[in-house]
């Protein structure tokens, strides 16, 4: 390479590098300058349901006269919890069992009782000046799905129906399912289902769906609020012996921001929303590619939150 070609090359590389740096460090919009009353910064997790829930609770607050700043797709729980502890956000919509186990650093306190999980969660949140409000009936937790054909064949509507036929079934889930108490070992101990085999796939992803579809597994780990299960011909078996801890939707808010009115608005949303509502909204926002804000607005409209 001659001198000119080399400097042109270097300039190109430099330009790319600077673009990358510029993209990486976009200035953060200051959420700290919110007024004491009337303005709430609300974060959503980085998955579709996170945006749906943030819009759902956020629009209810907006309707009540609060000014709401949305930070959708902010990140995972590690990121969102840091943001609320530092006060750069005021509110996020969490999950009772998962958040409990996050703030207690995996102590294993979560049970199948949503109210108990929320109470214990509040015990851990207090020192951080945070609090969890009332949990909703809507649950997004581990669930086990079968094709409708297989459910009919094995005459199964709940997990305890499978104990007798377990030796004909292959269970599929993420690799860790083979060793985690909520998954294969739990199904063996709590339900007495002894599977023919276990197949390592993914957490509720395309591999699990493909394996269920071609019958290389008969039971797969999914999440209870997935929007696409019905359209894929899958049915979730009832967890009749409560193996899974109750991961009910629950708002987590900074104590400095919470007022009786804020509480009232958020608890009213929690009191109404069910797992089926969540499935519908996830289906619209996920497989049907509708905007989460439109999906949430339609739900609130339909259930008279705006009247």
């Amino acid at each position: 390479m001659n001198w000119r070609a080399r400097s042109a090359f270097l300039a190109t590389v430099l330009a790319f590098a600077m673009t990358a740096v510029a993209c990486g460090s976009s200035p953060s919009s200051g959420g700290a300058g919110s007024t004491p009353k009337g303005s709430i910064t609300l974060a959503g997790f980085n998955f579709t349901e996170g945006s749906v829930l943030a819009e759902l609770y956020g629009q209810a607050l907006e309707h009540d006269g609060y000014s709401v700043q949305y930070k959708l797709n902010l990140g995972n729980r590690e990121v969102v919890s840091k943001a609320i502890e530092s006060g750069s956000i005021d509110l996020y919509i969490g999950y009772a069992a998962t958040d409990l186990e996050f703030y207690n650093k995996g102590a294993g306190e979560a049970t199948g009782d949503a109210a108990a999980n929320t109470a214990k969660l509040n015990g851990h949140l207090q020192s951080l000046n945070l609090q969890a409000l009332n949990p909703a009936a809507a649950v997004d937790q581990n669930a086990f799905a079968m094709t409708k054909a297989n459910a009919q064949k094995y005459n199964a509507t709940k997990l305890s129906d499978l104990a007798a036929v377990g030796n004909q079934l292959v269970l599929g889930g993420p690799p860790e399912c083979a060793t985690r108490p909520f998954c294969k070992p739990g199904l063996e101990q709590t339900y007495g289902i002894h599977f023919k085999d276990f197949k390592s796939l993914d957490p509720d992803g395309p591999l699990t769906r493909a394996a269920l579809a071609n019958n290389s597994i008969q039971l797969g780990l999914v999440f209870s609020s997935d929007g696409d299960l019905n359209s894929l011909g899958l049915t979730v078996l009832q967890d009749d012996k409560h193996l899974e801890s109750a991961d009910n939707v629950v708002p987590i808010i900074r104590s400095a921001v919470v007022t009786d009115e804020v509480k009232k608005v958020l608890n009213a949303v929690s009191a109404g929303v069910t797992t089926n509502d969540l499935i519908d909204m996830n289906n619209q926002a996920g497989p049907q590619h509708m905007d989460p804000d439109a999906v949430a607005a339609a739900y609130l409209q339909k259930h008279n939150y705006f009247s």
């Binding site: 690799p175 060793t179 390592s200």
Partner: peptide, 9 residues
Amino acid sequence: IIDGFGQQD
């Protein structure tokens, strides 16, 4: 390798 990673084994 994949299972060992997932299971933290």
